[in-house]
Each structure stands twice: as structure tokens, then as C-alpha cells.
Design a protein around this nucleic acid. Structure first.
Lengths: 211, 211
DNA sequence: GATAGTGAACAGTATTGCTATCCATAAGGA
DNA sequence: TCCTTATGGATAGCAATACTGTTCACTATC
């Protein structure tokens, strides 16, 4: 198939596909002559994946490229490839000089990780992000909302275990990496959407006059 | 205090504060002369809130303004104000013409909401986002990952209930709205961070060679 | 009285994610 | 065979976002 059909099959405009090709998000088609190339089903699938990461996962072009590269890297272990993807997803926060609140936030984060026995890169992007979020709660005087922290942790722990178990059941290793990465990126979007719905419901029950 | 002190107390550069003032994210200080204004602790707090929504919550300036306006709106109910905030957080997705996958995604979303008995705006932003995310799963052939959907829903349902209960314990209604909104925005960031950590841990246990 | 800070208005900038234009060539129908 | 349209490749342009810098008349403070 040529680029026009690739465009109609995915709904992505031709100039945009060309842009993704330039940016290395999509592999080039097979050139049959200097200005003709063939694309296949793999390109259709890849393009849908790119759009999902960009639109649903809200990744930048650069982050998308890194994530895709980590999926494609053939020589690393599954866990290493997930690590590469995670670094692309959590750009290191700026971070002011250390305030008292920041130190307390970091301590809380470390304590949580230690109590759970989570095997994570200890000064890593995920921990830093958690620290930053906790710092915001403290700085804004929302400590009371942190009573649910352990419930949050319980929930995501079992969810992650289910996700990884599901993916582990797949036979193809490449499909496994893709599953783990999509579990992270789309999983976040899914949890966020459900969280909003559940909050709307809880708020309706608590605060709204119900007919 | 003058703008310079507001800047040093919050770490936000003076030109940026001026920009936020222009954008209506921060109320003007009290003018004591044509080119002198006084700011108070309320401004410090508000500025920290703005930065938290922008940096941690990753909101745009426009979304931040809408969210802040909904917090400030004095005449609406708590639930209405949360609704305004939710609309600002979930910009309506573009949405292609309806494909088979899209219809199935919408059906799944509606079924989930119905089974849970969630009281939500039925064609609302949260449901649309959920539909879009489910659509991505289906389109990318990741249906097997949706086995955890009900677990996700269980988790967020109890989390949202805890959050709303916590906030309901507060005496000041303004603080309640702020709590609900921050529970949504910061809560999303918190869950995302924890989800990444838990996935890293689960991946390490399943895939990595452990010393 | 010198120096630095201030509010207000406005212009400029860096980045991001596309779009548009151009070109020589190729495909596919009349 | 001619003619319209599509293609790959390259480069330029554009709209939106979130600042940043510049100028101005003035004010606070040392």
C-alpha cells in the first residue's frame, strides 16, 4: 500500500505521516523506485500505536520516540526496556533547593517504598515524581488527604501485579514489552478516567441534592 | 509585601508573577499608589496552588484559570463546582466517525458505569475519556489487559469515597471545594506515580534476574 | 540624590506539533 | 500517449503555549 491508503486506513493526514517518518516514529516504507514506497500492515499498526501514545497517553513526540525505541530494542531484557520507557515517561522534575517540606516528602516517599518492599531504582524518576507530588500536598496543607495513601498503594500494587501477570501469559516477548508499556501508558489514562468518574459519583452522593 | 518578596517567598520569578496576574490566575494586590501594590499571605498560598496545578497537575494556563474560577465561584454547590473543574480537566476528545471498535468501547464504558450504579453525567467528559481509552485498548489488540478493568474500578471507587469523606470532615466549604479539586488533580498525579512504582516492582519480580 | 524596585503595556522568544509549498518523478486512467 | 493525480523528499511557515525582556513613568529606600 502507498502512503495515501495508509492515511485513509488510519485517519492520519498524509503530511502528518510524513512528519512522523521524519521524526523516526514510523519506519520508512520499502522503496520500489526513488519516489515510491510500499507500506504494510505493520505500518498501520505502528501508526495506531503512535497515535494512541500521543493522543491518549499525552506523550510528546520525543517521549514517544524513546518509548518506541525501547519497545524495539531487541537485546535488552523486558525489565530493562520497561526502565527505558519509564525514564521517558517521567522527565526529571526541576526541583528547588531542599525545603523542610521537600525533605519530609522525600522521607515519606522512601518510607512508603521501604514498607512495601518495592524493588525500584531508589533515586529514580518514579520516586522523584512521587516526592514532588507529596511535596505539593504538604505545601498546600492537604495532609489530611494523605490518609488514603496506603489505600492508593494497596490498589496500584495489586493492579500492577495483575497487569504483569496478564502480560506474562503472552508467548511473544515483543508483545510482552508492548503490553507492559501500554499497561503503563494506557493504564494511567484508564485509571485517571475511572478516578474522575468515581469522584463525580462520590461527590454526587455526598454533596448533591438527589431527586 | 511587594511583588519582589512574593517572588522570593515562592520561588516564582517576578515576570512570571506579572504574567499570572495578567492571565487572571492571581488576584491583583491592593494598590497603595499608582505603581505600588501590597500582597498578602493569601497571594503566597494562591501562587503555590497555581504552581502545583501547572507543574504537578500538568494543567494549561487556561485549564488552571477555569479550575480556580470554579473554586472561587461562591454561589454554586460543591458538586456543581467539581463539575466545572472536571470539564476543564477533560477537554472533549476529537473523536472520529464511529467505528465498530468505538461503539464497543462506548458500550463497555456504559455497561461499567451502569453496573457500578455510578451517578455521573451520562454523556459527559469523564465517560468520553474512558470510552476513548477503551477504544485504544481494543484497537491495539490489548483486550487481555482489560481483565483488570473491574479491579481498577473497585480501587478508584473506594479511593474516591475516602477522599470525599476526608474532605467532608472539613468545616470550611471553600476548603472543601479546594480539597475535592486537589484530590482530583493531585490525586491523579499521585496514583500515576504510585502505579509506575508498582509496575517497576512487579516487572522486577517477574522479569529481572534478582541477585 | 542615587539606586533599585514597581505596575502597566507591549513586543519578543523558545518550543511543540503539525501544515503548506515545491520539485522531479511515477501511477493510473482516457 | 497524454493528462491528472499521487508520491517521496526537502524546506519553510504557522498557530498555540508559556513565558521573558524592554520600556516607561514613577516610588521607595538607603
Amino acid at each position: 500500500m502507498r502512503i495515501g491508503e495508509l492515511s485513509t486506513r488510519t485517519g492520519v493526514p498524509v503530511p502528518t505521516i510524513k512528519y512522523y517518518l521524519r521524526e523516526g516514529l514510523l519506519p520508512a516504507g520499502e522503496l520500489t523506485s526513488p519516489n515510491q514506497a510500499q507500506y504494510g500492515d505493520a505500518h498501520v499498526r505502528r501508526l495506531k500505536l503512535v497515535r494512541a501514545l500521543l493522543d491518549v497517553g499525552k506523550l510528546s513526540i520525543a517521549a514517544t520516540r524513546t518509548v518506541l525505541d525501547s519497545i524495539d530494542a531487541p537485546d535488552n531484557s523486558l525489565h530493562d526496556r520497561l526502565g527505558i520507557a519509564q525514564h521517558a515517561l517521567n522527565p526529571a522534575p526541576a526541583g528547588d533547593p531542599d525545603s523542610a517540606d521537600l525533605l519530609e516528602a522525600r522521607e515519606r516517599a522512601d518510607r512508603l517504598i521501604a514498607e512495601r518492599g518495592w524493588l525500584v531504582e531508589s533515586p529514580g524518576p518514579a520516586r522523584d515524581t512521587l516526592t514532588q507530588v507529596l511535596h505539593s500536598y504538604l505545601e498546600l496543607g492537604q495532609q489530611d488527604l494523605l490518609v488514603v495513601l496506603d489505600d492508593y498503594a494497596d490498589a496500584v500494587e495489586s493492579l500492577a501485579a495483575s497487569e504483569i501477570a496478564t502480560v506474562g501469559r503472552r508467548s511473544d516477548p515483543d508483545s510482552q514489552v508492548e503490553g507492559v508499556v501500554l499497561g503503563t501508558v494506557l493504564g494511567d489514562a484508564l485509571i485517571t478516567a475511572l478516578h474522575r468518574l468515581a469522584q463525580e459519583d462520590a461527590s454526587a452522593r455526598a454533596f448533591a441534592a438527589l431527586g
